[in-house]
């Protein structure tokens, strides 16, 4: 085989392992703020993802070992698990993960071929199909009197006999849900934000979670596993869009800081929108991709039918990737100052 004959030490496995590692602070904060239920969700999603991946590889005639070892299925599983309500029933987790791995990943051609982010496809399918179950968020421990233990969480997830009263005591709407419901009931943002669930910025517990994901994301950035373009543009898109709306009518639109630290934004910015396979590849394209996803997130949150918009925003931007890439081809060495988009 011809040159080059030496390789850098990087590998897909290494990249994915770093992504998983960077999620650990977030998971730790999750456990601390919302109880250990997430661990059950993560484990269930991981097992399902690996089994589905192995089965699909076998069905498609690929060798299983190198593809299972690349850890990409686990990354998908974790991202989906962290986006789901932490007390979601087991079948919801399994359905979402299966859909993500089997349909969104393998039916599109497997690793590197999927045009949509698999975790977000799984999430979107679930929220469209099972909106009620998708709101079963564990309440922040700060706000509950009787937090669930690991065993109790597992019991809830696996549909054990949990009295409805107990369940109501430990679940709660997310801040975004609360904001949405409040606005529908003609309250102003300030009135809604006075509820205890809204902490300083993005909701009790959620803001710490966001901070932990931000930390993990910064580690990925420092290691050059993710570029700065997508997260920065994504956050800027959210901040500017929300800020613009808030500036004109603070009573009807949430504050930009709230939108930034609300659930799923930091996770989306550093771990989901940065998915290289389904994202834009050119430097300018990454900026457009990130900003567009941020903008759409706020738009969907504000006017859409669902409380959160990160998943739909990213999926919509995934659709635009070929177009974005084609029209943002960078200038090459020795190229003309102004690049013309190559004709299709």
């Amino acid at each position: 085989m011809p040159s080059p004959f030496i390789l850098d030490r990087s590998s897909v496995t290494q990249v994915m392992a770093w992504v998983l590692a960077a999620l650990l602070p977030g998971i730790a904060v999750y456990v601390w703020a919302f109880g250990p239920g997430i661990l059950v969700t993560l484990a269930l999603a991981t097992v399902t993802a690996l089994a589905a991946e192995a089965a699909m590889l076998k069905a498609r005639g690929y060798p299983a070992k190198p593809f299972l070892a690349d850890l990409s299925a686990i990354v998908t599983a974790w991202l989906l698990a962290l986006s789901l309500p932490s007390l979601a029933p087991w079948w919801l987790i399994v359905t979402g993960t299966l859909f993500a791995i089997v349909v969104a990943k393998h039916l599109y051609g497997g690793l590197g071929q999927n045009i949509f982010n698999p975790a977000m496809v799984g999430y979107a399918v679930l929220i469209v199909s099972f909106p009620a179950q998708m709101t079963q968020w564990a309440a922040p421990l700060e706000l509950t009197s009787a937090p669930l233990t690991l065993a109790q969480s597992a019991a809830v997830i696996f549909g054990g006999d949990v009295p409805k009263a107990t369940l109501d005591a430990v679940t709660m709407a997310t801040p975004l849900d609360a904001l949405r419901t409040g606005l529908l009931q003609q309250h102003t943002v300030d009135e809604i934000m006075a509820q205890p669930i809204f902490g300083h910025y993005g909701g009790v517990g959620f803001e710490w979670l966001a901070a932990a994901f931000l930390l993990g994301g910064l580690v990925l950035w420092a290691l050059r596993i993710v570029g700065w373009q997508v997260p920065l543009a994504f956050l800027a898109g959210i901040w500017l869009t929300a800020g613009f709306l808030h500036f004109f009518d603070a009573g009807r639109f949430g504050a930009p800081w709230f939108h930034l630290f609300a659930p799923s934004v930091m996770l989306g910015a550093f771990f989901i929108a940065t998915d290289p396979v389904s994202g834009a590849t050119t430097p300018r394209g990454k900026l457009i991709f990130g900003f567009g996803a941020g903008f759409l997130t706020v738009v969907i949150r504000t006017w859409g039918g669902y409380p959160d918009g990160v998943a739909f925003a990213i999926l919509l931007m995934n659709l635009c990737v070929p177009l974005i890439d084609q029209y943002t081809q960078p200038r090459i060495y020795g190229g003309a100052k102004k690049t013309k988009a190559p004709s299709a």
């Binding site: 085989m1 498609r60 005639g61 690929y62 060798p63 190198p66 593809f67 051609g109």
Partner: peptide, 14 residues
Amino acid sequence: HPVVMLKQVSGDSS
């Protein structure tokens, strides 16, 4: 044409 992709190992048609 370089023959290196894992696909060749298994003779997959996709």
